[in-house]
Computed example of a mutant assay.
Amino acid sequence: MHAAIDQIRLVAARFHSDYRFEASTMTALSSPVTIVNATGLHARPAANLVNVAKQYQSDIKLVFKGVEANAKSVVGVMGLDVSKGDQIQVKASGSDEDAAMKAVAAAIAGGCGEK
């Protein structure tokens, strides 16, 4: 089992530098994503982000300063209290974890629908 995990990590590192797999849980983890919203992830961008996350079956978490929040919960996202310029990571685990992690990270990098 560990050999298979190591092989997946090697392939992921070689071809997908924007994420990695955690060996113990086979979880996709994004590179740090910078919050671009002037007021951080307040209600509107948090709701937009949650709507993106809910399109996927995987369990999706946002990680900020060692704290994880459910990316499918507006209260969870807002509870991280991230501000403009903060960096967070997206962690996903499940059948569509790669697509989920990439979509949520892209939404964050793009300002969650705000201009």
Rank of each mutant, 00 (worst) to 15 (best):
P45R: 02
G40T: 09
A105L: 06
T27I: 08
Q89V: 00
E114T: 13
D59R: 12
G79H: 13
S58F: 06
R9M: 08
R44W: 10
G40Y: 12
C112D: 13
N37F: 03
I5E: 06
F15T: 05
D96P: 02
V33M: 01
S17D: 11
H2S: 05
G113D: 01
L49D: 02
K72E: 09
V90S: 07
A105Q: 13
P32F: 11
A38D: 12
K61P: 00
S24R: 13
D18M: 11
A107L: 07
S93D: 01
S73T: 00
P45Q: 02
S83Y: 10
K54V: 05
H2C: 01
A109L: 03
A103S: 10
G76N: 02
H2D: 07
T39S: 09
V67P: 02
I60G: 01
K61H: 10
V104I: 12
A106E: 07
K61L: 07
V11I: 15
Y56H: 15
V63E: 07
M78Y: 05
S83H: 15
H42P: 08
A100S: 02
D96I: 08
S17W: 04
M1V: 12
T34Y: 00
K115D: 10
Q89K: 12
A4S: 06
V75F: 11
M26A: 14
M78F: 07
A109C: 02
M78I: 10
D18T: 14
L80Y: 03
G85P: 09
S73H: 04
L49Q: 12
N70L: 05
M1K: 12
V77F: 05
A3K: 15
R20E: 04
G110I: 00
G110N: 10
A23F: 09
L49V: 04
A105D: 09
G85V: 09
A13F: 07
A43F: 08
F64A: 13
S17A: 11
G40N: 12
V77I: 14
A71W: 13
M78W: 05
V82K: 01
V75K: 10
D96F: 14
S73K: 02
H2F: 10
K54Q: 13
Q89H: 02
V52F: 13
L41K: 00
A38N: 08
E22Q: 10
V36G: 14
A43H: 06
E97K: 15
T34N: 01
D18F: 13
R9L: 02
A28R: 12
A23R: 14
F15H: 14
A47M: 08
I60P: 00
A105N: 11
K115H: 04
I88A: 02
V36H: 04
I60F: 05
Q57K: 15
M78V: 07
F15C: 06
D81E: 11
R20D: 01
A69G: 06
V82W: 04
E114I: 12
S30P: 04
D96G: 10
A47V: 04
A28N: 02
A107Y: 04
T27Q: 09
S30A: 15
I5S: 11
A13T: 07
A12T: 10
E114C: 10
K115C: 00
E97Q: 15
S95Q: 14
F64T: 08
N48V: 00
D59C: 05
I35T: 05
A106H: 02
A100G: 06
P32T: 03
